[in-house]
């Protein structure tokens, strides 16, 4: 009896299925990436060509006039994101440390983890309405209604679940032996966390924070209710402030050519900033594997 051939046979039904299903998987992968590629290309074509120094530094023109830029919106987005980070990072990292290091998986920790997951799924417009009801409509902040701080708070509500979750999971990845080692040389719990565990988990935490900021920076809905918009340079943190996402929302539907161009340019800048933030996050994550 001659041995069966070992060479690849195209007609074999398992090989046919194999090729077929591989092609289907490849097709769906391509479909999944397609929107990303199309959005990037479209924004690049429509907005990329408009980018120049004037656009990045000047104020938007009054309706009907040409020229101008989105300088105030870029500054505004940075300011609001910074306020959001200042609120969300301490709360989120602190909460994550509590969950991973102190809570010992009790019922309260389970409840907080569940709540965090729910909060992560809450539509961003709800966060906006929440801060509107809490701060803006009540004029709780020194009698001011719409303000940069209110906008930052709304974005912070969006960021907190991401930061808590990544901190919690980053700390859980730190080997237990490392904590024992620190305890074994007489470190108290606080010293173990601040000097050993947190530094060991810094990369995943930083990645989560950057992704949280990137997500929040692109949000429109929470800002419409809180930071509102302003066609002028920022007038302090207690007054309404421009942001790129709200600028796009306002200008893209205006009947003026100049404003529509600015909306496209702002889209381009925003997408590039978020892309850069994601690349930064990837780089930070890469650091941890070295």
């Amino acid at each position: 009896m001659t041995p069966r051939t070992l060479s690849y046979r195209h007609g074999l039904s398992r090989n046919i299925w194999n090729r077929l299903l591989s092609s289907v998987a490849a097709l769906f992968t391509a479909l999944a990436v397609l929107p990303l590629v199309l959005v990037l290309i479209y924004v690049l074509i429509k907005g990329g060509s408009l980018i120049n120094m004037q656009l990045l530094t000047e104020l938007p023109p009054p309706p009907g006039l040409d020229g101008g830029g989105i300088g105030n919106a870029i500054v505004g987005t940075l300011v609001v994101s910074l306020i959001a980070s200042l609120i969300a990072i301490p709360i989120g990292v602190g909460g994550g440390i509590y969950l991973a290091e102190y809570s010992r998986s009790g019922p309260f920790a389970q409840f907080v983890r569940f709540g965090t997951n729910v909060l992560a799924g809450v539509p961003s417009i709800i966060c906006g309405v929440f801060i509107y009801g809490l701060i803006v409509s009540t004029r709780a902040l020194m009698g001011q209604s719409y303000s940069a701080i209110a906008g930052g708070m709304a974005l912070a509500v969006l960021m907190i679940p991401t930061v808590i979750k990544t901190t919690d999971e980053g700390l859980k990845l730190v080997p237990q032996e490392l904590r024992w080692g620190a305890m074994g040389v007489g470190a108290s719990r606080v010293i173990t966390i601040t000097r050993v565990t947190l530094p060991a988990a810094l990369a995943p935490i930083a990645t989560g924070v950057v992704l949280g900021i990137a997500r929040a920076a692109g949000e429109t809905a929470p800002l419409i209710f809180t930071a509102l918009f302003s066609p002028f340079w920022s007038d302090g943190l207690l007054n309404p402030i421009a942001s790129m996402s709200v600028l796009i929302y306002n200008y893209a539907i205006m009947p003026y050519e100049a404003q529509i161009s600015l909306a496209w340019a702002a889209s381009f800048v925003l997408v590039m900033m978020i892309l850069a933030a994601n690349l930064l996050a990837r780089w930070l994550g890469h650091l941890s594997r070295q």
């Binding site: 080997p175 032996e177 490392l178 024992w180 080692g181 620190a182 074994g184 040389v185 007489g186 050993v196 060991a200």
Partner: peptide, 10 residues
Amino acid sequence: GMVFQKPNPF
């Protein structure tokens, strides 16, 4: 002080 089974340098 204590030394563990698996080496655990910081």
